[in-house]
């Protein structure tokens, strides 16, 4: 039902060999929704006013995994999509999104995914998003995801995003509003190379008593690529927040990390750490003493760092 190129993209972004035989699923290919499948607890419907889908997860859902991959193989396409997610109270769900672009033409291919999550009381959401680009065309591969998350009392959200290679330009915007006792964990992984640009702009508001957030960014910038991280964390009550930006810089790349903390309450406890540096020479030498070449040693260090 889908071609080899699509299958390779699916493998990269969702670790799927093919369309899974069961479970809630939505596949969007080249700007069209091609497949929707709901389950009893996870209802997926197409939007009528604009491109995109609504996903409703029933309250109390014990655990379900939902895959919503997007693949683009047509050069010159700009795809904007609005997806809204409503996670019912006490539901536990894993949503695996991701976008793969195969561009072997000379025109820009772009996907802007605008995702809004409404996470109910005590619900537990794991959101995994992988971005990937390939194809040997001159045309650019551009991904501009926006992710907005509203967390009610006691909600837990774990967000793992990764973009390893292949995407020429990215402007990522993430905004999370954390309610009372809510717990947000964001891990962002990024590798840029060539003359790629990546911009990650993040706003987290800790609004309810006992809310917590932990934001970790790990990135590698190679060649002449350029990355900007701008995580902003506001504590507006008794809360706890932690931001870590950790970047490995190589070749002629540039990295800016600008963590910003705002405490608007005396019991807000906020911490940030940022480190940018090249691979420590000692680490490469150590792995060489185990018999690795310098190149292989470097690769192992990067693979581990971005795992």
């Amino acid at each position: 039902m889908i071609g080899e190129v699509e299958k390779k993209l699916l493998k990269e972004i969702a670790n799927l060999d093919d369309i899974p035989a069961e479970g809630a699923f939505s596949l969007r290919a080249d700007g069209e929704g091609v497949l929707l499948r709901s389950t009893k607890n996870v209802q997926i419907t197409r939007k009528t006013d604009k491109p995109g889908i609504n996903i409703h997860v029933a309250p109390g859902t014990v655990f379900e995994s939902v895959h919503i991959p997007v693949v683009l193989t047509e050069s010159g396409l700009t795809d904007v999509v609005y997806n809204d997610f409503y996670i019912g109270e006490d539901a536990t769900v894993e949503i695996v999104a991701g976008c793969g672009i195969h561009n072997c033409g000379c025109d820009t291919t772009q996907h802007d995914g605008i995702h809004t999550f409404y996470v109910g009381k005590n619900a537990n959401l794991t959101y995994v998003e992988n971005h990937y680009g390939d194809g040997d065309g001159e045309g650019k591969r551009i991904l501009n995801p926006q992710t907005i998350v509203y967390m009610e009392e006691g909600a837990k959200v774990t967000m793992d995003t990764s973009q390893i290679r292949g995407v020429d330009d990215t402007k990522r915007y993430t905004k999370c509003i954390v309610g009372k006792g809510g717990d947000l964990v964001i891990t962002e992984k990024l590798l840029t190379h060539g003359d790629q640009h990546a911009d990650s702009n993040m706003e987290v508001e800790l609004n309810g008593e006992g809310a917590s957030a932990s934001i970790t960014s790990r990135s590698v910038a190679q060649d002449e690529s350029y990355q900007v991280f701008y995580p902003r964390l506001s504590g507006n009550c008794a809360c706890f927040g932690h931001v870590t930006c950790d970047a490995i810089i190589m070749d002629k790349a540039k990295v800016r990390a600008i963590p910003e903390l705002t405490a608007n309450h005396v019991d807000a406890q906020l911490i940030h750490e940022a480190a940018i540096g090249k691979i420590a020479g000692e680490q490469i030498l150590k792995l060489m003493t185990l018999g690795l070449t310098a190149e292989k040693a470097e690769q192992e260090i990067l693979d581990g760092f971005l795992r």
Binding site: R218, A280, I301, G304
Partner: peptide, 10 residues
């Protein structure tokens, strides 16, 4: 030396 992300098993 110490490594971020490399495990003992690695």
């Amino acid at each position: 030396p110490r490594f971020k992300g490399i495990r003992v098993s690695d």
